[in-house]
Design a binder for these strands. Sequence first.
DNA 1: GGTACACTAAACAGCA
DNA 2: CTGCTGTTTAGTGTAC
Length: 679
Amino acid sequence: MFQCVFSSSVLQPHSTSCLFKHLFYHSATPASQKQPEPIYSKKTEIQRQTVRAPFAKLFIFSALQVARQLLLQQQQQQQVSGLKSPKRNDKQPALQVPVSVAMMTPQVITPQQMQQILQQQVLSPQQLQVLLQQQQALMLQQQQLQEFYKKQQEQLQLQLLQQQHAGKQPKEQQQVATQQLAFQQQLLQMQQLQQQHLLSLQRQGLLTIQPGQPALPLQPLAQGMIPTELQQLWKEVTSAHTAEETTSNNHSSLDLTTTCVSSSAPSKTSLIMNPHASTNGQLSVHTPKRESLSHEEHPHSHPLYGHGVCKWPGCEAVCEDFQSFLKHLNSEHALDDRSTAQCRVQMQVVQQLELQLAKDKERLQAMMTHLHVKSTEPKAAPQPLNLVSSVTLSKSASEASPQSLPHTPTTPTAPLTPVTQGPSVITTTSMHTVGPIRRRYSDKYNVPISSADIAQNQEFYKNAEVRPPFTYASLIRQAILESPEKQLTLNEIYNWFTRMFAYFRRNAATWKNAVRHNLSLHKCFVRVENVKGAVWTVDEVEFQKRRPQKISGNPSLIKNMQSSHAYCTPLNAALQASMAENSIPLYTTASMGNPTLGNLASAIREELNGAMEHTNSNESDSSPGRSPMQAVHPVHVKEEPLDPEEAEGPLSLVTTANHSPDFDHDRDYEDEPVNEDME
DNA sequence: GGTACACTAAACAGCA
DNA sequence: CTGCTGTTTAGTGTAC
């Protein structure tokens, strides 16, 4: 989950596809409108309603939280590094980095990715520069504040211990506790100030936050702060802490150049046990040696040390124990030009991550707004106020602007970061989910599954335990058609299900029964006695008979459908754009390596042509509210309630998203693993 | 409200 | 007897 989510922004290409598949299926595409649920007959409607809408939102939230965690980790790394640099200049342009970014740890983005990130930013280069500088300065300030806050906590704890053992100094303890409380309150204020700061940035045009959108739920200390406010706060805290302390220069108090860069910092106890030790006018107490602090707190915990390896960017030196690591840190990563440069690089990485986080926050907000609009749209409008007229629909679906969506006037969904293609991608596709999308569309409108459906989301469904939005009949047909001889035994169909869909790796009794039921029920499935037993084939004629009722639409839609671009273009463009935005290899359906995907285009055309034939004969049945994509591919529209287990939140989805194709045999997977490879 | 459809669950039979 | 395969029925939910 973690990597999948976060790398969507910066780091890991492979996971990016994962994320965008998630996005597609929980926010954007018509397919997302269906949330699976295996057993819904015994669930109350209330359960379903509460389960569906928050699903995607929770996932997005989770993704953001994870990204935030990683960002904080990066900040920690930078923090440790930054304290070692006496030359660091907060206002220094971030691009003057002599050290190759490729030296960084595997976690770190490559120069190419960095460039991509830069290119995809919403801001102009000038704006970006300004914003970078501001963020850089603010970030350092808040880091210092964090450190001080931590010290305060430590001090309080130590004094509490002292009090317990010695039973004295109650007054001082109370004083510190009071300061602690006040400090926490001030932190809350700072959070508000952060939002103000963002708003000011927005007013300056440096941030593109949509109007009317609620303030972003900023995390304390996770965003930049107004320097003056922070300094004021700093002054208040420090002055309250030591009354006799001569308030130092605000700039110097925040200037890392005044900090002690020696690794042999004064012991923490000396600073903490005696508050007066920090009354030297220099705020060395506020610039602790993190390694020493964390070392004492957690003997083997260090942001730059983990799994016996030095995590200094580009180092990865093996250190047997923590002591050796400290030696290594002090020797190999001492204060020099190289370390300084690396530190700057790390700073830049953090900045980029922050920017990316801000951007993703924006995206999240837009998505949430979008989903909120959709979910709160009155159900009483089965024919939604589709402002996309038939004239508009006669054009390419991809040309339709998101503004065409029926938005509630109070919560307009402004264009989503129009500079980047990623969000607009989602918008482009999600725009086709207008109307009562949360409602499950009739399966009458389900076009049987096409190769494109599975192809484009194959990896997703293979790994994510999400029920595919396709009917059993469609899946069975797909399985059979994918086989070389266009025929499968029942067991082979089972295997196809379990191989292609993680969802079908559990509750085997249920879905297998359903498969058998469908095989028997539908005339399109023909049982043929074969040499090796009975096999099932698909009677396409019978199968096509089901189609006429599946597509209805007005002539404009039909006309639009005559070009396969109506369906292919937006989706493929969406995928490609999202991939390009995240600088990952194009994940086209044709490059997925599945032999069945080679016929994707023809399959799509086949589906479309087949649909067209029937649709043309049924033009009287118009559905003006249906968008082209829905009309062409209404199978995505079908929405189903969530499985209670899946409804637990995004975690269930996201965690399973990283499952290896190897099945989880320990989870209700009643059958043997796939014991034969049909292909 | 009726109808069609999909899904789930279950019963049942035949067979190896 | 057990398990698999295949058929059928019933109940439920959803969309039209």
